[in-house]
């Protein structure tokens, strides 16, 4: 839903990091995107590509890893949600319960990441 504003924040962090490290260009960006966020990966990449035009990031390869949602429940269960379909916001509805005991509000321990893990940069020859 809010891919553009998320892309703006990621773009600013990526560019700032690249410039602080005297990058000549950014060759790749590794990101994690949790499946419980309301962010569409294709739209996020599209927004980042639009923002990257004319910048150090223009030719960078944008890698997004979709991180699965995991829960830790009071019953002791720790792991993924049980589902027979790919877990998407569109078919989540009541599937967010603990698959072991049925507790509808287990602690979510992963799946909410919108994270830039690292970037690869080419260094300026003068440095």
């Amino acid at each position: 839903m809010h891919e553009y504003s998320v892309a703006m924040e990621l773009y600013e962090v990526i560019l700032r990091t690249a410039m602080q490290n005297n990058a000549k260009k950014i060759t790749s960006v590794d990101m994690d995107l949790g499946e419980l966020t309301h962010i569409n990966p294709d739209q996020l990449v599209f927004c980042l590509e639009v923002l990257a035009k004319g910048s150090l990031m223009e030719d960078a390869k944008l890698n997004i890893v979709n991180t699965p949602s995991k829960v830790k429940c009071d019953c002791g269960y720790e792991g993924v949600f049980a589902t027979d379909r790919p877990l998407m916001i569109s078919n989540l509805t009541f599937n967010l319960a603990c698959p072991e005991c049925g507790n509808p509000v287990p602690n979510i321990i992963s799946g909410k990441e919108i994270n830039v893990r690292n970037i690869k940069i080419e260094l300026d020859d003068y440095v």
Partner: peptide, 16 residues
Amino acid sequence: MCEIEVEVGHDVLEAN
């Protein structure tokens, strides 16, 4: 020319 990897570790929702 050399290529290096730089750790960023910025999470949008965590920052919020």
